[in-house]
Simulated scan of single mutants.
Amino acid sequence: MFGNYLIGLREGLEASLVVCILIAYLVKTGNRSRLAPVWTGVALAVALSLAFGALLQFGSSTLTFQAQEILGGTLSVLSVGLVTWMVFWMRRTARHLKSELQGRLDAALALGIGALVITSFFAVGREGLETSLFLWTAVQASGDGVRPLVGALLGLATSVVLGWLFYQGTLRINLAKFFRWTGAMLVLVAAGVLAYGIHDLQEGDLLPGLRSLAFDISGTIAPDSWYGTLLKGVFNFQPDPTVLQVVVWLLYLVPVTTLFLTPERSRPLPRPRRPAAEQQAGR
């Protein structure tokens, strides 16, 4: 439940910040009459995300067991790739998100109402599709359709409240640090989802090694115990993983976490060129 709360909070907060920046900029620039197209784009993005989630859920239920495992494993790997790209992208652009969005909005205002709808639709829709895909894979991994959804809804509700407080100017936090540490936690969650996806592909006979277990500590950490449920719900922990699952988990977690937590190098500013007259005088 905590892992899905984190997903809902982070993805929802990104979308909330985008909406807040768009609305605040329109209001401050005297374009309050253009708010309707922005909200239309947001509503379309939300509807698309819900439809995508429903398609994943009901479409997969008509497949055979092997096809379900292959689909679930493939989408798990895809969702991990999207989440990894997202956390690195937000780490790089968190400080400049406002200016980037305002630039896009200026261009959309010049083009008309349709461009405003498209701008807000794509700005929010990307987050919604990523959330739907990642939550679906998390629900499949946990085998529980209630708690993951409750956690995600609580995270989304929290993000809406935080977004409203940001818009009102009553809440200020360091967004770069917030997205950095929540991103690090999401990388850990994503590693578990990736390992689960590998297991699905093994059960679908797409990858070998289903019977080759790395270890089995089911007697120590029972899957139906409260701590076993907690570890599975947060990190998709499995007490009897295969060798391939452990190898892939390590190959993903170690380098990605290291790269993500390594401070970015600031580029040195270019030295100003001296006028030609000064260069000749200095010789």
Results as ranks from 00 to 15, higher is better:
R92L: 05
G209N: 07
L55F: 14
L129W: 04
V46R: 03
A277H: 07
V234W: 04
V246D: 04
L231F: 13
T93V: 11
T182H: 12
L48Y: 03
V187S: 07
G204P: 00
G282C: 07
T40L: 14
M86G: 00
Q245G: 08
S61V: 06
G12S: 00
I198M: 01
A222I: 09
S120L: 00
E203W: 10
L165D: 05
L253P: 03
A94Q: 01
W164Q: 10
R32Y: 05
T242C: 09
S61Q: 12
G282D: 10
V77C: 09
Q140N: 11
L101I: 05
I173G: 14
S61M: 09
T64W: 06
T84W: 04
R273N: 10
L109A: 00
K232M: 10
F65K: 12
S142D: 12
G183D: 11
P275Q: 11
L6Y: 07
S142I: 10
L111F: 08
W249H: 11
P263W: 06
A157E: 12
V234E: 00
L171V: 13
Q140K: 13
Q168H: 12
R147E: 09
H199F: 13
P239F: 08
G197K: 06
F52V: 12
L244Q: 04
L82M: 10
A94F: 03
F122V: 13
S79M: 02
L129V: 15
R172K: 14
A214Y: 03
V247I: 15
W85I: 08
L105D: 02
G112K: 05
G169A: 15
P263N: 08
I173C: 13
L171Q: 11
T119E: 03
L149I: 06
G128R: 01
A138M: 11
F88T: 05
Y5G: 00
G233Y: 11
P223K: 13
R180E: 12
A108T: 03
V187F: 05
K177T: 12
P239L: 08
V161N: 04
Q238T: 11
W226C: 05
V150Q: 05
E264F: 10
S225T: 11
G151M: 02
I217T: 08
G228W: 10
A157R: 14
G155A: 03
S225N: 09
Y196H: 15
V247M: 12
